[in-house]
Amino acid sequence: MTASSVTPHARTPDERLAAEIARLLRPQRFPSRRDLELAGVAGEGAGAYAFYDAFWLPGRVLALGAAQVRRGGTAGALRASALHRLLRAALALQVEPAETLDLAESAYAAEFPGDDFDLAFATLDPATGRFAGFGRGHYCLSVGAQASEGEGLLPEGSVLWLAVGARTLGAVAAEAPEFGMDDLAARLREASGPGAALVGVTLRSLKRKGAHDFAIPNDLAAIAGLVSDIEATLSREEVPDMVGAALGLALDELLTNTVSYGYPDNGWHEILVDLEVTPGCVDLTVRDDGRAFDPLQSPEPDLSGEIEDREVGGLGIHFVRTLADELSYARERGWNVLRLRKRFAPEAALDSSGG
């Protein structure tokens, strides 16, 4: 290849490196859920980098974060990346909000003395609607367009907004997410100007009795612990042990296939499992943002053939189909969503307990 045949990039290598670091700051897209909906946006301003984040803490508490570093280029992108990790680590400690902020600030200042930034975070318990938030610099925390003092109760249908790069949000923040949170966040981002970052969450409904949420990283080593937790939860909900064990085995098969084959990027991802128990019925929903894959389209395995000749994962999916009374798949907001329903006779619970 001659030098004259190479098409020059419009940006310098430093600019492309900074853009790639900024891309890696984008959080995992939040899935559609029965109890809440979330959306966020972040933009690159002149000489600044901004990001938002959303992830689950132990105890099924949702953590939200947003930050802006007032420096451009690779140096700014690296600082934003460091601040992102510091915020996640500090929130994971689950200490008081003021202490969380102090930890992140002091660690950042030790590495980048004199650098200014805006930072805000909030936690939300979807089971109760209770939230708490804190921040520094140019930021705002509000329910709709009404600024919050730092903690409160989020009513069903209202939106909790967290933003940096601005101290107040415009009138759009007061609107209900009639056309979805993505639409509302995009319009609010336009009104906030370049370089701002914001994230919002709305409660569709408070968690119902018998509803449980779990999350694990895409790590095979994490599956056994999750399955054990779900089987214990089913036992507490008085689901027969035989049904709980079968659901645990089905979940193990589904998660093993997802982790093993669903993530060609080899990056970090979170897999969500929702469980709802009602009299005589268990609903299990598995959500992952791996490559699109509908297990219901997989052909039935040839059970007469040799084991080594059978397709990988085929028997596991066959078992899930056999177990479920209802099974459905959808691709929602970039996530695979598999819903499984298993019915059981209420009197079986008495039989399994010896009554």
Rank of each mutant, 00 (worst) to 15 (best):
M1D: 01
S4M: 13
S5T: 08
P8N: 11
H9I: 03
R16F: 02
R16C: 05
A18C: 13
L24S: 08
S32I: 00
R33D: 12
L36W: 15
L36I: 15
L38W: 02
V41I: 13
E44D: 09
F51T: 00
F51E: 05
Y52R: 05
A54W: 02
L57M: 02
R60V: 05
L64I: 02
Q68M: 05
Q68Y: 03
R79Y: 06
R85E: 02
L86T: 01
L86H: 04
A90H: 11
L91Q: 01
E96I: 00
P97G: 09
A98H: 11
E99S: 12
T100A: 06
T100N: 08
L101G: 06
A104S: 13
E105V: 14
E105M: 12
A109Q: 13
E111R: 12
F117H: 07
D118L: 05
T123A: 10
D125A: 13
P126T: 09
P126C: 08
T128H: 01
R130A: 12
G135N: 10
G137C: 00
L141K: 00
A145T: 04
E151S: 14
L153K: 02
E156H: 01
W161M: 02
A173G: 04
A173C: 04
A173E: 07
E175I: 01
D183K: 07
A185R: 01
P194D: 11
V199S: 00
L203V: 00
L203P: 03
S205N: 08
S205E: 11
H212T: 09
H212G: 00
D213T: 11
G225Y: 08
A246L: 13
D252R: 15
Y261C: 04
Y261R: 09
G262K: 07
Y263P: 05
L272D: 15
V273I: 15
V273W: 11
E276L: 15
G280K: 02
G280A: 04
C281R: 15
V282E: 14
L284H: 05
R287Y: 04
D288S: 09
G290F: 03
P295M: 04
L296Q: 14
Q297E: 15
E300N: 10
D302P: 08
E306L: 08
V312Q: 07
V312R: 08
G314W: 03
G316H: 10
F319Q: 14
A324K: 01
N336P: 04
L338M: 10
R339G: 11
K342Q: 15
F344S: 11
L350W: 10
L350H: 12
D351V: 11
G354D: 07
G355W: 09
